[in-house]
Design a protein around this nucleic acid. Structure first.
Lengths: 159, 159
DNA sequence: GCAATTTCATTAATATGTTAATGAACCTGT
DNA sequence: ACAGGTTCATTAACATATTAATGAAATTGC
């Protein structure tokens, strides 16, 4: 087994840890968490987005997205709508206030991106993007959903 | 602003989403969560690890690590020790049972790595690793810790 | 020596991730 | 029409992430 710190997953996590705190600091200055930001980001690009598509676009798992949208809705930044033709669906849309946030937050976010571009050599950046896209495209054979052989390590468990 | 789905953070998240479920399925078959696996992974490489160092090596935030180690300890996989020379510290060490897990889980994990290597062209992989390490090394100037200008979007907030 | 500071793990409060289950709405074939 | 199956958002239960605060233990400054 290779050295833990040099494994691909840990490299991915370290890369994220290097950049995301900068972005999150910007989001926080405007009262947003990262998932909340992602939802708004999608809604700035698309008028009205089906819940399912929103989860896919933001990479926020559907069960988490329920709470995220709840809080954005409570804050008056988005609305939820049930279309008559399929009342199971939920269509999410940004309010005027939610749309207005774009102009407020974007400049500071752009600046972080600028720092990134400035700090990363173009060829390194290109190789990185190519590698990431290759990974994302892998579509490794879906997990066989083998039944668990052992119970998970959970709180109440004593020896 | 660039297209959301093509931003570097989303590319990083998509790459992780493409590979981690495979690994987590293996961990789950042995009753482990991903952070739990990471902790054990470090303890297999180092006899006894200071809490602080364990958090850094696993990239698990210290407050989260408290619970992770609690559960591993309750499951009999690790122990916590307070050194006499500095009673604030906590030294974590794997038990015999925790050490035994390595031989049980490693083969399946190696297999996932093998799938990854087989699916990713060597030059793409090299470019990816180079890019990730460059990102991780960035050390963007620490966040200025500017005071929040707006309250976070929280549950109880109504318009 | 001791008050002030700093370090360290932990707790607290809130938000999200993960997996399974639920319940309503739709669909399918008959 | 309707029983059975499917889709969809949501809830449930648990574990973790994030930020701030706490409290005990070490260290520093004077």
């Amino acid at each position: 087994m290779q050295v833990f710190s040099e494994s691909l997953p840990m490299r991915l996590y370290r890369a994220l840890n290097a950049v995301m705190p900068r972005f999150r600091a910007v989001f926080a200055e405007h009262g947003l968490t990262e998932p909340q930001w992602r939802v708004l980001r999608v809604l700035w690009e698309h008028e009205e987005v089906p819940f399912r598509a929103l989860a896919a676009a933001t990479l926020v798992p559907a069960p988490s997205l329920v709470g995220v949208v709840d809080r954005l809705q409570a804050a008056g930044l988005v609305t939820r709508r049930r279309p008559a033709r399929d009342r199971r669906q939920a269509l999410v849309r940004a309010t005027a206030q939610g749309l207005a946030l774009e102009r407020a937050v974007t400049p500071a976010v752009e600046q972080v991106y600028a720092e990134l571009r400035a700090a990363l050599a173009p060829d390194i950046h290109a190789g990185l993007v190519a590698g990431l896209d290759a990974l994302a495209a892998l579509e490794l054979p879906a997990v066989p959903a083998a039944p668990r052989q052992h119970r998970p390590v959970t709180e109440g468990e004593h020896t």
